[in-house]
Design a protein around this nucleic acid. Structure first.
Length: 272
DNA sequence: ACTATTTCCTGGATGC
DNA sequence: TGCATCCAGGAAATAG
């Protein structure tokens, strides 16, 4: 379940491997779910371009592309990993994994492959290099704009944090961990949270995301980075997936509730 | 303009 | 052991 820290880790790893390489040809599978743009548009946009940058925007991985030739037209390939999406850089003779939906042949001789069993991931392209993800970057937003996001919102703070149109990149794990660190209950209505508490929440979000990036993300189920290595932040989780286990602060058993269909974990004593 | 609910998917875990 | 069922969750679609 790649969220901001996992996507950041993957994008950085990919940047090291494929920046400057050229996309020579593109194969796309038959499944239509992973494609947001049409297969022909994606292939035509990617082929014969040079990868100039690989970066993260929210939970999206953005490949900035430049057309060969004098015009140097800009374009972008945008990848959302969904739940189980993976981008692998491998030799062409490497076995093609089940659920491979895209294979890009690179000039260096390697292949960049998109694999996604559950097909929640999405591939799309932007023609003029103008992809704009909704929401604010949690590691860049200032306190005033962060506070304004929640003004007048009756929805539970947990749901607000998961809403990518407000803040982009925070998912279920980091929402729960941030709420624990700022002593806020996940069901707390966003609009009722004081300025001071929101400041604490923003600091907690930044802290959690930065710590997770430093540890290479959280390896839940099958997440690995672009080198096939696991992250280690799952060892630092204080509430996520710790139902009934003692709170690390007060020993009270961690509770799990469902909010908007998502499991939410919190300490009933520390988070009031 | 918001908010809540449903839907898409497969593999791993669980239950009988 | 084998088969059926349930569950995980990001975000788009739908309904209110």
């Amino acid at each position: 379940m790649p969220e901001l820290p996992e996507v950041e880790t993957i994008a950085c790893g990919l940047a090291k491997r494929v920046t400057g390489d050229r996309i020579e040809s593109v194969w796309l599978g038959q499944k239509k779910e992973p494609l947001k743009s049409s297969a022909s548009e994606i292939a035509a946009t990617l082929e014969h371009t040079r990868i100039t940058t690989v970066r993260r925007m929210g939970k999206h991985i953005v490949f900035d592309l430049e057309q060969n030739g004098p015009k140097r037209t800009k374009a972008q390939w945008i990848v959302h990993l969904g739940m189980t999406g993976r981008l692998q850089v491998c030799e062409p003779e490497a076995e093609v994994a089940k659920h491979t939906h895209a294979i890009l042949k690179l000039k260096s001789g390697r292949e960049l492959r998109f694999v996604d069993p559950r097909r929640f991931g999405r591939l799309s392209v932007a023609q003029a290099g103008d992809f704009a993800a909704a929401g604010l970057e949690p590691l860049e937003v200032d306190l005033d704009r962060f506070i304004k996001l929640f003004r007048g919102r009756k929805t539970p703070i947990k749901s607000a944090l998961l809403n990518q149109n407000l803040l982009r990149g925070v998912g279920n794990i980091y929402a729960d961990e941030s709420l624990f660190r700022s002593n806020l209950r996940p069901r707390r209505r966003a609009s009722t949270i004081t300025r001071d508490q929101l400041e604490k929440l923003l600091l907690a979000i930044r802290e959690v995301l930065k710590e997770a990036i430093a540890l290479g993300g959280s390896s839940i189920s099958d997440y690995v980075n672009s080198d096939g290595e696991e992250g280690f932040f799952q060892l630092q989780h204080r509430v996520y997936a710790r139902e009934s286990e003692p709170c690390l602060i007060c020993k009270t058993p961690i509770k799990r509730i469902v909010i908007a269909g998502r499991s939410s974990h919190y300490c009933p004593k520390c988070q009031q």
